[in-house]
């Protein structure tokens, strides 16, 4: 026999799935929302997203090379691009660039690489960066530009968002169609529910994620806000407005479903989704911040190891006691 054979135990073939494939599909799924953001918020959205993505990639490369001293680059897996895109999507389109860079540094440096890189981070890196910016620069982070100022960046006119109006001026909320298409103020990637839902379809079609987390979050929010609305329709907005406003869609489709920080089992994912939905509603309706999605996801990220411990998959042949 001429050839030198490999030996290893079964299985001898691989399905061909890879980290890169998954990440590239997530990026593809984010593209509709990115295009929508540029259409809605103009050049500002483009500048912020580009800065965020590039600085995230740069920081990942620098830390990998000079702090962790690893020989192989991890840029190729695409996770830094996703973190950069998600971070940008959570920022207003008129935010100063130095803040974007700071956010990227916190997201990649503290949120991800400090724990050893992709796979080891307990919290969603993009959200770590976003929340850091939110508590550091609350006013810049909560003054969102009015849509359709195509060429305006730092000089864009700002206005209140649907979530900000909620509870005070329920009658001046934008129409459902405007909210669905994203013609409202808000962080640059979160407003267009249509684009985000297209992203969800792509993710589900490529089997990158399963339906459990997004559906359980959205259902929980709809049910809880629906109850409050039925109790008092004057103070509380209706469930559809809640579903379409703020970062709920973006968070439940792209942030909560992050592989590393979400539970491993189907039932665990449902509990995780319910937890996020519940916390989001609590913060939205009773908290001092108008939007609670980021905090809700981060809190449930912290609970994920416990969920993994409690929620075991249904074992074959083991009958429920």
């Amino acid at each position: 026999m001429a050839q030198k054979l490999y030996i290893s135990t079964s299985p001898h073939v691989h399905g061909g799935d890879s980290i890169e494939k998954n990440m590239h599909w997530v990026i593809t799924a984010l593209l509709p929302a990115f295009i929508a953001s540029v259409i809605i918020f103009g050049i500002g959205a483009l500048i912020v997203t580009a800065t965020s993505v590039l600085s995230c990639m740069l920081f990942e490369w620098l830390i990998n090379r000079y702090l962790l001293k690893r020989s192989s680059s991890t840029l190729g897996d695409g996770s830094a691009i996703i973190t950069g895109m998600l971070l940008a999507f959570n920022l207003p389109s008129n935010i100063p660039l130095y803040m974007v860079v700071m956010g990227s540094l916190v997201a990649i440096g503290i949120g991800k690489m400090a724990f050893g890189g992709l796979g080891n981070n307990p919290f969603n890196p993009a959200l770590v960066g976003r929340v850091f910016l939110l508590v550091s620069f609350p006013s810049r982070m909560t003054s969102w530009p009015v849509p359709h100022q195509m060429l305006a960046y730092s000089d864009a006119v700002t206005a209140a968002t649907p979530l900000g109006l909620m509870g005070y001026q329920n009658d001046s909320l934008p129409s459902y169609l405007d909210m669905f298409l994203g013609n409202t103020g808000g962080s640059l990637g979160e407003t267009c529910a249509l684009a985000l839902l297209i992203g969800l379809v792509i993710l589900l079609w490529r089997k990158v994620i399963t339906w459990h987390i997004p559906v359980s979050i959205l259902l929980t929010v709809a049910v809880l806000t629906g109850i409050m609305w039925l109790v008092n329709p004057v103070t509380y907005a209706d469930p559809l407005t809640h579903l379409l406003s703020g970062g709920l869609m973006l968070g439940s489709i792209f942030m909560a479903t992050d592989y590393v920080t979400s539970p491993m089992t189907k039932n665990g994912m449902v509990w995780y989704g319910i937890g996020i939905g519940f916390l989001t509603v609590i913060i939205r309706l009773f908290g001092s911040y108008p939007e609670g999605m980021s905090f809700a996801i981060l809190i449930m990220n912290a609970v994920t190891p416990l969920i993994n411990n409690w929620c075991k998959p249904k074992r074959f042949g083991l009958t429920e006691k």
Partner: peptide, 15 residues
């Protein structure tokens, strides 16, 4: 690294 995608958990026929 394990990226905790949970695909192995979904694939395992023995749960």
């Amino acid at each position: 690294n394990c990226i905790r995608c949970a695909k192995c958990v979904s694939a395992c026929p023995m749960g």
